[in-house]
Design a protein around this nucleic acid. Sequence first.
DNA 1: ATAGGTTGTCGAAGCGCTTCGACTCGGACT
DNA 2: AGTCCGAGTCGAAGCGCTTCGACAACCTAT
Lengths: 335, 335
Amino acid sequence: MVTLAEVAQHAGVSASTVSYVLSGKRSISTTTRQRVEQSIRELGYHPNAGARALASSRSNIIALMIPLRTDMYVPVMMEIAIAVATTARTHGYDVLLLTGEEGPDAVRRVTGSGLADAMILMDVELDDERLPLLRGTDQPSVLIGLPADTTGMTCVDLDFRATGALCLEHLAMLGHRDIAVIGEAPAVYERHTGFAERTLDGLRGRSQELGVRLLHRPCDGGYDAMAVTLARILDERPGTTGFVVQNESAVEPLLALLRQQGRAIPEDVSVVAICPDQVATQASVRLTSVAIPAQEMGRHAVEHLVAKLDGRGKDEVVLIAPELTVRASSGPASA
Amino acid sequence: MVTLAEVAQHAGVSASTVSYVLSGKRSISTTTRQRVEQSIRELGYHPNAGARALASSRSNIIALMIPLRTDMYVPVMMEIAIAVATTARTHGYDVLLLTGEEGPDAVRRVTGSGLADAMILMDVELDDERLPLLRGTDQPSVLIGLPADTTGMTCVDLDFRATGALCLEHLAMLGHRDIAVIGEAPAVYERHTGFAERTLDGLRGRSQELGVRLLHRPCDGGYDAMAVTLARILDERPGTTGFVVQNESAVEPLLALLRQQGRAIPEDVSVVAICPDQVATQASVRLTSVAIPAQEMGRHAVEHLVAKLDGRGKDEVVLIAPELTVRASSGPASA
DNA sequence: ATAGGTTGTCGAAGCGCTTCGACTCGGACT
DNA sequence: AGTCCGAGTCGAAGCGCTTCGACAACCTAT
């Protein structure tokens, strides 16, 4: 293992000079710098992470806490994680992967040990028990998702309320008067993950403004659960012609079931999904959808965090505006 | 930030004693140990990760390199990552998330800097350029996947060759004589990710032994790609009654298309999928499938790694035996 | 009773880096 | 000519931990 001292000796300078070449915190003459850089290359030197962390009290690591459960949006989580990792690298940070399993203890452990300089939390619940801990530390953090109380927190999320409103608006404008919402799994609502409820708020609010009837039903993913849910919906509101689907693993089953019942899409019923674009374009019908901007959220989160670590950047709630793309699954309500 | 020294002072012992209480590397009297533990609790002490890494040259971090691409098995990747993270924690390790993006450089950086004690590589290609680097270091590593040359490597993977054989066998036993394989996306074959080719080997080998006709077609995910592929297959081999599907995002489209053509499952055609159980049970038909044991793979990988780090454990290729679960998508070939 | 072994504790020496203060040297300013 | 300043470099002091050797106290065996 090559050390700073060896590089220094090889280049004929002192250790501190090498350090300053690396960090750029003091000016170094061009000739010296080049000599040092040459030595670094020749010896294949990599600074020791532990020593660096100890001396500078900076680990250059960002902790990312992902949900353990897989009842929800797995591809979105993955995409966010990858975006976080790649963006972090462009700023010189690595990413530590924590699962929600440890809960608040993980927060304590990471902040206490200086393992990471900052944290990103996913799957934030409305009244998340990790938040008080984060507020009680000076370690910067960013939430992906929106808790009930955002004071002192930086949050990044899709504006799900606006998303709900947008979906409803789209269907209402097409003339649909009876709209059903296929929600997330019941468990998601029970644990008060905000996004599902905010979406619903947006849907409800706009439906009242526009005089549209709305029926919301949570739904586990998969064919069987969807079949049951759909039957109930059509029983209660036979005139339903518009569907908004939030649970991405209910999309394909819904389409299959509708088709099976002889309801044509979009001639008889319209479907709007809230899902990643990939899902929308790979489905058996190209879906009109509001995209979940996973990459953008991951990137945003990291960039806010880096800004905070650099002393720039303030607490802020960033709600990404939803964009609805019209594809082949929605059309005018039949007269 | 509480330090070891403060704990020592609070407990009225020396720093080294506290360290030994923590590590258990020397015997400590019960009374002293309890006093120290009490102080640790009262002060809320967490050992500083950097200092610990520096002094012990152990970071207690395992690096996990996941593929950047999302053209394949995203949920599987995610499940593996989560299994790795949780298993690692039970052994006192944290997980550093690296994306394939940096390629071999990431390996150099991590081993060179002592950021991690060991690595797990996913999405290993047959002739992976990261392998020489791994061989040239004394840092333990485990591959999830199987390269062409496994000498000096520890690998964990599903036995895809046996998986292929098993799928074929199942269909052949049911009387199917013309079988089509819906493979992974062409890109997967082009980059020589071994598992797809090994599956094919297994299928081909057994088909010859059993005298069954086999047609293999790579296929991108999604409805449209599947439609084209299926049309070609049925054009070339109209008598095809058995399907083996490896690309999980082609499963649902295939089912929909077959249904649409009036082919009943399993009365007219049988379908066997290679996919996680969740996909198999949530599909519109409960699928006969060979499960991809993502969790098991992640867990295995970590446990081998930990064994190596503890000086136990040797290089070894672990191929997990496939298990085929018969569900509702396969049945006897119609006479 | 004494040599020998255990057991429990301590002090001190690093691990490899960052960073502060100090120093030298040349040029710019009085 | 003398003073001041900035640029460029160095030495040394830690950062908080682990670990080695030393040592005291006690407990066996002889």
